[in-house]
Design a protein around this nucleic acid. Structure first.
Length: 428
DNA sequence: TCTGGGGTCCTAGGACCC
DNA sequence: TCTGGGGTCCTAGGACCC
């Protein structure tokens, strides 16, 4: 495999500061200046902290139950994650970014790469400030921006802007090679985008400690120890762009739905209900993208943190022809479940993956196999439109259960301020 | 009691073919 | 069944990201 290198590119990496915490604060000004944390699904661990909470030494990723007392003592505001709210705030932010650049890659819920190639270099920092101010004015979200000739460098620039918000005014521009080297010399390799724990260990063992030292390394040597992924990073650090902006239209390879249970679950019937729910929501996503899937897999596992008998397993099935019909997929999922379920264990998590996608119009059907009939497709369409209008889960399969005792906890969730009429903010 | 969920990309190795 | 090099395709698992 060879590396395709481009010069003279300009990328901007825009990232919202403490995104989940900032979303909570937009609708609750009383939180200004106060420490905030947001918890993962199930209120399991801390997935977002703001600067005020960080200053108190609250660790990112720490389990909530261990930190509960510390949070209380320091009067930290705690929220369960409210993905409906964050998702909506995110799309507002991304809409604004599309006004500022012809090509935008939405990289995650709170980050995007912009292609600013061709812009006048002198004015680019000022342009970035304009982007920040517009986002703040229109959504209330504070952001930082990094500018550089490659994506890896733009991530580093963004990191620098965030670390030194006051000095940088939220924007770091590394288009100048000297300014860039200065930052790289003080940047540890393990913080580089694409260098994780394992790769960093290898680099340290070869006395490559900073981004600057990695930049100076021989790409072929790095390729030997870190594969092609590593040598690409070396080129990117040199300002030679070889990781393209990927466009939003690219299709997904797989759809995953999985979640921990709110409690330990042993009954097959309860796990099956949960699987049916995962399949329903994944199939809905599939239909939204007008795709059919030809492979489904499921997995179950016990709680690895608990000192009880452990078991985990997965199973998959190929479908002769693609489908997006929930009932068919639930049926397959249940067959797989029977293959791997063992009674007597306390299960903690299960999930499903749909993959091997096909565009509906490209489908090759097997002569003997059944494909989705118009009747089934219409049924799906009706169910989707009812659920879209009246809210998720208004109509669902009986297999999904009614009581759903296994459901996750989410005890400190803020209202869906922007997406539900009944939860709009009230001004007295 | 209580430790997230959803993705991508790359490589090694097995199965199969001539 | 074995001999052997060379090739493709597929899958599982690792590493990484937010």
């Amino acid at each position: 495999m060879s590396i395709d290198i481009k010069t003279d590119k300009i990328f901007a990496m825009v990232d919202a500061n403490s995104f989940y915490c900032s979303c909570e604060r937009v609708f609750n000004p009383a939180l200004n200046g106060k420490p905030i944390v947001v918890l993962s699904n199930n209120d399991g661990c801390i997935v977002a902290i703001n600067d005020e909470a960080k200053a108190l030494g609250i660790p990112m990723g720490g389990p909530y139950f261990q930190l509960k007392e510390t949070l209380k003592k320091n009067q930290v505001q705690v929220f369960s994650s409210n993905y409906t709210l964050y998702g909506d705030m995110s799309s507002r932010m991304m809409d604004i970014l599309h006004l500022f650049a012809p090509k935008v890659e939405v990289y995650s819920i709170d980050e995007a790469f912009l292609d600013l190639t061709g812009s006048e270099q002198k004015k680019i920092t000022q342009y970035a400030q304009e982007i920040r101010q517009t986002i703040l004015r229109h959504t209330g979200l504070p952001t930082c921006i990094g500018i550089a000739p490659s994506k890896v460098l733009a991530k580093i620039a963004n990191y620098n802007a965030k670390k030194n918000k006051i000095k940088t005014q939220g924007v770091t521009n590394l288009m100048d090679p000297d300014a860039c080297d200065f930052v790289l010399k003080n940047f540890p390799v393990d913080k580089i985008w694409g260098v994780g724990y394992q790769s960093a260990r290898k680099l340290y063992s070869h006395k490559i400690n900073t981004a600057y030292e990695l930049k100076q390394s021989d790409p072929e040597f790095i390729r030997k120890i870190l594969t092609i992924v590593g040598s690409r990073i070396v080129q990117e650090l040199r300002g030679l762009s070889c990781i393209e902006l990927s466009n939003d239209q690219e299709e997904r390879q797989q759809i995953i739905s999985s979640r921990s249970f709110g409690k330990q679950v042993t009954l097959a019937s309860e796990i099956k209900e949960s699987l049916a729910n995962h399949i329903s929501s994944a199939a809905e996503k599939l239909r939204k993208q007008n795709l059919l899937c030809q492979r489904i897999s499921i997995f179950l596992r016990t709680n690895p943190f608990k000192n009880t008998p452990q078991y985990q397993n997965s199973a998959s099935m190929d479908l002769l022809s693609g489908t997006a019909v929930t009932s068919k997929l639930i049926n397959c999922g249940f067959q797989l479940f029977e293959q791997i379920y063992k009674p007597g264990y306390e299960y903690k998590k299960c999930g499903i993956t749909l993959s091997n996608f096909n565009k509906k119009e490209n489908l090759q059907t097997d002569f003997f196999s059944k494909y989705d009939s118009f009747k089934e497709e219409n049924l799906m369409r009706v169910i989707d439109s009812i659920n879209k209008f009246h809210g998720r889960g208004t109509v669902k399969y009986a297999a999904c259960g009614i009581d759903q005792f296994w459901k996750m906890l989410s005890q400190m969730k803020s209202p869906k301020y922007t997406t539900s009429w009944s939860e709009l903010i009230e001004v007295c």
